[in-house]
Design a binder for these strands. Structure first.
Lengths: 237, 237
DNA sequence: AAGCGTCGGCACGCTAGCGTACATAACTCA
DNA sequence: TGAGTTATGTACGCTAGCGTGCCGACGCTT
């Protein structure tokens, strides 16, 4: 089982583009630093930029009612923030929260929409990426519904590790509770269980993945399925 | 509160297209009858056709593990079956189950992909439709997670009523349980509660909506939000 | 009219997870 | 060093929903 991401610092959607496309596209990009906790977008806001994370990553969070939140997708260097713009829609209904600090390429929404029609290879890739995310949204709706906190936590840690590219994750139980839409105490119990099995180890805001294969075993199949779909639809690029 | 659908028998995505587009498109379509329970597509299968329901409707169902199923989206005359083809992807990971018998326009995947580039208005609409469905997937993931069976049932009945275009729905508790990913007995209790409130009435396989506004009141806001997003993104077309 | 299959009501004990609250432990900073 | 803040452990009773199984009612078939 390989991770989604075993490649050097570059956004996977942008690597190995045809020379012309790449040049035009990169010329319109700037590199920005994203810091943890930054909110790039709120529901009903309009995209001013698209982001292609390099070593940062972003959580997409759905809100229902006044205070229920649930992370529904992640965008790291395997993905992008700004899918609606690929569909010529300029708004979002999700919160985009920087979950892993680091750098990203960024381009104005305007440039993006102007350049996209002249970038057929990238455009094709982005459409496939949207398909992958849609499918993940659908199956993770089912996952969130049927699977237990411990499995979901394991899956979430794996996804995060892939995007952070390190074993050491800076995460509090509080934060994890928000992501999974459960109680903080629920995370504590699940984390204790995973630690007792020797899969992770944590102290005060840091979780270290000790046994990745074991963690995959402990997670629901949704993690494997997610990875498999991504590599099928966007193979190595 | 108006429903998504208050229009005569026609697929909403196809109405009022420019003459040329419409003619080319319709010429490639045939009308088919879909019968209840028909499975049009299974996970990993390839699309042979796209469907534009007229008075039928189709459930999209996610599968996790061996026997957990959850309805994640519906396609009636406000939508289509075959979104991945708009993204140039020919497969699906979802089950497409005919949930309301009736007719639909259908076209081969091949024709669809050939005609789409020459149908800019339709193409634009379909992209917006995909955005709507993606957003609904995201928020209904949260809805399924946070809201109770009774609210979710109310919402589901409203969505179904919109697409069926009638007060009388032919549904067993067993079937509803599958859609919502809960026990049959759980549906029975929720249905009893809704009936006690005078919102619905049912006997042996038939549910009648008695008080639509009341049912909206009883459902979570997700129903209203869904409708609002659709009409915002695809206004009356 | 009888029989059978389907559908719905209900009841049992059980579990995961909730809301809440409080205590302890670990860092931070004055 | 000591005070304050933040993160984690844990405990309490509670609720929604689970899995299961059984019974009765309905309605179709013959």
């Amino acid at each position: 089982m390989t991770s989604i991401l075993n490649v050097p610092a570059a956004n996977q959607l942008l690597v190995e583009l045809p020379e012309v496309e790449r040049n035009a596209f990169m010329a319109a990009c700037e590199t920005v630093e994203l810091s943890f906790g930054e909110v790039l977008l709120q529901p009903t806001e309009t995209f001013t930029h698209v982001y292609f994370p390099i070593d940062s990553f972003i959580s997409l969070i759905a809100v229902v009612g006044t205070d229920s939140r649930l992370e529904v997708a992640m965008a790291g260097r395997e993905g992008m923030l700004g899918m609606p713009l690929v569909l010529s829609v300029e708004e979002t209904q999700l919160i985009a929260l920087v979950q892993g600090a680091g750098s990203a390429l960024r381009m104005t929404a305007e440039s993006f929409q102007r350049l996209l029609p002249d970038s057929p290879v990238l455009h094709q890739r982005l459409k496939r990426y949207i398909y992958v995310v849609m499918t993940q949204l659908a199956t993770s709706a089912a996952c969130n519904h049927f699977h237990r906190i411990e499995e979901r936590l394991a899956r979430w840690l794996l996804m995060t590790q892939d995007r952070a590219g390190t074993d050491q994750l800076n995460l509090t139980h509080e934060f994890l509770a928000m992501m999974l839409g459960v109680r903080r105490a629920g995370i504590t119990l699940a984390a204790i269980a995973l630690q007792a099995r020797g899969l992770i180890c944590y102290q005060r805001g840091t979780i270290t993945v000790l046994d990745r294969p074991g963690l995959i075993e402990a997670s629901c199949d949704c993690y494997r399925d997610d990875c498999a779909l991504y590599t099928k639809m966007l193979p190595m690029i």
